[in-house]
C-alpha cells in the first residue's frame, strides 16, 4: 500500500466517510469536514501507523498565519520564509497555498502525504 492509500484509509475511518471521497486534492477541513479533534486523532494515528514523531503545528500548518505575519514584519520574502518552516512543502505548493488563503483552511490530503514522506 502506498503512503497515500494508508492515509486515505485512516482518514476514511476517522471521519466515517467512503475512501473514494478522498483524493490527494481534497481539503481536509473544507471538503472532508475534519474538526480539531479529528486532526488530533489523525496525528496520533499517523504516529502509530508510520512510527514517526508528528508535530501538529507543522503537519496541519497551524502556524502558517503566524509565519505570514512574521515574514511581513521582518520584510522577508514570504515564500522563502515558509519554505524554511515547512520544508516538506514544495515551492509550487507554497505559492498555491498563498493564493488560496482567503478561501479558508488550506491543508490538503497531499500535504499530509508529503509530510509523512518527508519524515
Amino acid at each position: 500500500m502506498s503512503i497515500f492509500e494508508k492515509i486515505r484509509d485512516i482518514i476514511a475511518d476517522l471521519l466515517d466517510i467512503e475512501e473514494d471521497e478522498i483524493t490527494l486534492e481534497s481539503y481536509l477541513i473544507r471538503d472532508l469536514g475534519a474538526e480539531s479533534i479529528d486532526l488530533l486523532e489523525l496525528a496520533v494515528a499517523l504516529n502509530s501507523t508510520f512510527n514517526i514523531e508528528i508535530n501538529d503545528d507543522e503537519i496541519f500548518l497551524k502556524t502558517l498565519r503566524l509565519y505570514l505575519t512574521e515574514a511581513k514584519e521582518k520584510k522577508e520574502d514570504t515564500s522563502s520564509y515558509l519554505a524554511v518552516r515547512f520544508p516538506f512543502l514544495e515551492k509550487k505548493r507554497i505559492e498555491e497555498i498563498m493564493e488560496d488563503l482567503e478561501k479558508g483552511p488550506v491543508i490538503k490530503v497531499k500535504d499530509i502525504v508529503r509530510y509523512v514522506a518527508f519524515r
Binding site: D13, L40, E41, A43, V44, A45, N47, S48
Partner: peptide
C-alpha cells in the same frame, strides 16, 4: 491523552 487515544484507535481498528 495521546497515548490513550492511540490505544483506543488500535482497538477501533481491531474492532473494524
Amino acid at each position: 491523552a495521546r497515548a490513550m487515544l492511540k490505544k483506543k484507535l488500535k482497538k477501533q481498528l481491531k474492532k473494524k
